[in-house]
Computed example of a mutant assay.
Amino acid sequence: MIDYTANSADAWEALCVEQFQLCSLDWAAPTFDAGLRASASSAQLSLRLLTSGPFGVSRSARDIRRHDSDDLMVVLHDAGAGGHLEHKGRRSELRPGDAVIIDTTRPYAFDFPQPIQQVVLKVPHELAGRLAPDAGRVFHASDGPLGRVLRTILREFAELDEPIPFGSNQTNQSLEATSLAVAAVDLLSAIYASDSTRNSELLGHAALLKSGQDFVRTRFRDPALTPSLIADYLRVSPRLLAQVFSQAGTTPASYIRDVRLEEAARLLRSTYHRDVPIFDVGLRVGFADATTFTRAFKRVHGVVPSEFRAAAPAVTAV
């Protein structure tokens, strides 16, 4: 257990970047202080208990490009006044007792006009099970067992973080909290999977398509990304995945290719990437070799990448 304090907005921003991921403090109260307690940390996940004065913080698309993150943050807005969250195209109100899952591969913004207290469990995507597709949704007390268990588990972690009595084994307590956190994520995933109402909603074709598209847009730079990996992530059959994408007039493989080519065109137009070799552009967007990249690009744009770069008006996008 480690306690941190911040007596200025700049110190709080630096602490948030250190403990969570690259983000920006958009505003803070003129007289500002905050505290953060770090516990249950491991190579796989971490638990943070924070209290702070009024502030607003955001993680932009530019922040994501500058500093990749593959974590989910399970946030319990435990006490204080309400605030607002913008994430995955939604603007939601956060009231005391609410919990929300944040996907750090997507932009987000928090705004808290009054002092708050929160519990934040940071979990890698690969450990998050079926929680990931529900990122951005606020869980209220009326949302059934998942919302209640989210709040109960996180509050129990807060109880685990009481000061350690003299003579006790701090290492053992930290390991206990970490192992319980892993078990808690497994439990939440199991509750999620067994909730037939939530499953029927999420397994609707529109929701599956959106989740699949979101997954591609966060992983397209990986040359190993395939339709099978999308299906595994969504826990559906490749046949159902193909059916869902076909209703949108495409296929999973075509969508992967189109996203890669969209990003390649953006890089080729960017003045910041003007001197990047064409082959490197292809590698950056997930193509394994220059020949495949050039052929795919020409089929869509009618010209090879070098001709596209020469003819396209330069823009200053990063």
Results as ranks from 00 to 15, higher is better:
residue 1 M to T: 11
residue 1 M to R: 11
residue 3 D to Q: 14
residue 5 T to H: 14
residue 6 A to V: 05
residue 9 A to N: 05
residue 10 D to W: 01
residue 11 A to E: 15
residue 11 A to M: 06
residue 13 E to W: 07
residue 14 A to H: 11
residue 18 E to H: 14
residue 21 Q to D: 13
residue 22 L to Y: 00
residue 23 C to R: 08
residue 30 P to Y: 08
residue 31 T to L: 10
residue 32 F to W: 04
residue 36 L to Q: 08
residue 37 R to S: 12
residue 38 A to N: 02
residue 41 S to K: 12
residue 48 R to I: 13
residue 50 L to A: 14
residue 56 G to N: 07
residue 58 S to Q: 11
residue 58 S to W: 06
residue 59 R to N: 05
residue 61 A to R: 11
residue 67 H to C: 03
residue 69 S to Q: 05
residue 72 L to Q: 03
residue 73 M to K: 03
residue 74 V to F: 15
residue 75 V to Q: 02
residue 78 D to Q: 14
residue 87 H to D: 07
residue 87 H to N: 08
residue 90 R to F: 13
residue 91 R to P: 02
residue 92 S to K: 07
residue 92 S to F: 02
residue 94 L to W: 03
residue 95 R to G: 00
residue 96 P to G: 02
residue 98 D to G: 01
residue 100 V to K: 03
residue 107 P to W: 10
residue 111 D to Y: 04
residue 113 P to D: 09
residue 115 P to H: 06
residue 116 I to E: 05
residue 122 K to G: 04
residue 122 K to N: 04
residue 123 V to T: 04
residue 123 V to C: 05
residue 124 P to K: 07
residue 126 E to T: 12
residue 131 L to Y: 04
residue 135 A to W: 07
residue 135 A to F: 08
residue 135 A to V: 06
residue 136 G to P: 09
residue 140 H to D: 08
residue 142 S to A: 13
residue 144 G to I: 05
residue 147 G to Q: 06
residue 148 R to G: 12
residue 148 R to M: 12
residue 149 V to H: 11
residue 161 D to G: 12
residue 161 D to I: 05
residue 166 F to K: 13
residue 168 S to A: 15
residue 169 N to Y: 05
residue 169 N to W: 06
residue 191 I to W: 01
residue 193 A to M: 08
residue 198 R to A: 12
residue 202 L to P: 03
residue 202 L to G: 06
residue 205 H to C: 01
residue 205 H to A: 12
residue 207 A to T: 08
residue 215 F to I: 07
residue 217 R to S: 08
residue 217 R to Q: 14
residue 217 R to C: 10
residue 226 T to H: 10
residue 226 T to G: 08
residue 230 I to P: 01
residue 232 D to L: 13
residue 236 V to D: 01
residue 237 S to R: 09
residue 243 Q to Y: 07
residue 246 S to H: 10
residue 246 S to I: 01
residue 249 G to H: 06
residue 249 G to R: 07
residue 250 T to I: 06
residue 253 A to W: 01
residue 253 A to E: 15
residue 255 Y to N: 02
residue 256 I to L: 03
residue 258 D to F: 07
residue 260 R to P: 00
residue 264 A to R: 04
residue 268 L to G: 02
residue 269 R to D: 06
residue 269 R to E: 14
residue 270 S to H: 10
residue 271 T to F: 07
residue 283 L to H: 11
residue 283 L to P: 00
residue 283 L to D: 02
residue 294 T to Q: 09
residue 295 R to V: 11
residue 295 R to E: 12
residue 301 H to D: 00
residue 304 V to H: 09
residue 306 S to W: 07
residue 310 A to D: 14
residue 312 A to P: 01
residue 313 P to K: 10
residue 316 T to K: 13
